[in-house]
Design a protein around this nucleic acid. Structure first.
Lengths: 197, 197
DNA sequence: CGCCGTCAACCGAACGATCGTTTCAGGGTC
DNA sequence: GACCCTGAAACGATCGTTCGGTTGACGGCG
């Protein structure tokens, strides 16, 4: 997690400081986290911290970029590009849960962005674009008759995204059953959580 | 929305100021919202604002109390207390969506609490207690054999709460179909969003 | 009716604390 | 000695909050 190229002191690379910073952002919230908090969590003083990173918002942007790259990468995968709309949708959901697991802190931070700064608004717009592509895929599946009647596409898409994204609020890596989670989510989202009356 | 008893100047009562404050909290985030922002949104100066409210955290507490009272009120309703576990669960979900609609700003604020202050930790604990009572109801329904096999109760409960709570991120009152939303959510949560393979 | 004391409502200015960020004077290693 | 790293101290800005004073409508009194 340290020693950039093997020279000089132990030193802190930008990557490990980002890890620390994002963890703090997620526990206290971005606005409530001070640079003092970040440097203390990293084990150095505030000014030393500034020698490695250019500012608070740069850390946020790096974290949000990582989360968005992970999510948009899903849309470029072959299984997301060809085949029946419903199959593509299931693959995207499966992979979205996987990315949420592997990039948990970054995705969590992304899902909490409010739009106060230019960076946050940029991330918000990108995230909305991701959700929109899922929504259009749901609409396509409905139009193709692959989804049972009575499902209002935009509502279904919103609940779908909401369900998947809510995982970030309780999932913690390393617990048993983590590997099975993506498949379980796809199954439950398909079969329903509790049976209808 | 104003004129407490009809005397003196136009005046602002505590209730309308709370409405304004919660709206600001939800757009900017609690920590990122200054008392200057709140007073400007209310149309008075910062010091005038302080004449009506005792402080920032008091506003937060009042809002969170209103949200929590609305949610816990559901658990005291007759339909939540007797009958098959699955019926009780469906009623609670239906009503939870209704409360989320009617108390949208307050519930939204509650769902974003991070636990920085004592007030936030109190709200967090109460909210967890609410979720726990739903989770135990799901487990009861599974134990009674009212839910199809293969559903892991704790996972189902978490996805269930996540799905319902995610509504606060996009629902806006006044749009057509609002009245049908609670029923739609109960139905979709039961039948699934997209059909299984 | 007219006058006045009273008090809630409001505002301008300032409080100490903390924010994100910068400066500068060293230490450590090559 | 050159270079990277570190930390103590301080920067202006803004935070939540308080203080002192002005305004103006109301109730009581002559």
């Amino acid at each position: 997690m340290t020693a950039p190229t093997g020279r000089r002191r132990p030193a802190y690379d930008a990557a490990s400081l980002l890890t620390v910073a994002v963890a703090e952002f997620n526990t206290r919230g971005y606005d409530a986290t001070s640079m003092e908090d970040l440097s203390r969590a990293a084990g150095i003083t505030k000014s030393s911290f500034y020698h490695h990173v250019s500012g608070k918002e740069e850390l946020l942007k790096a974290a949000l970029t990582r989360a968005l790259d992970g999510l948009f990468g899903i849309l470029s995968e072959p299984e997301s590009l060809s085949g029946p709309a419903l199959d593509r949708l299931r693959h995207i959901i499966y992979r979205q849960v996987e990315v949420l697991q592997s990039e948990l802190p970054y995705v969590t931070l992304l899902l909490r962005v409010r739009g106060n700064t230019e960076t946050e608004r940029w991330a918000l717009a990108r995230r909305r674009a991701f959700d929109a592509s899922i929504a259009s895929l749901v609409a396509e599946a409905v139009a193709d008759g692959e989804v049972r009647a009575g499902v209002e596409p935009s509502l279904a898409a919103r609940l779908l995204s909401g369900t998947v994204n809510s995982i970030s609020e309780w999932y913690r890596p390393g617990r048993p059953g983590s590997d099975a989670l993506p498949g379980e989510v796809v199954r439950i989202v398909g079969e329903g959580i509790i049976p209808p009356a």
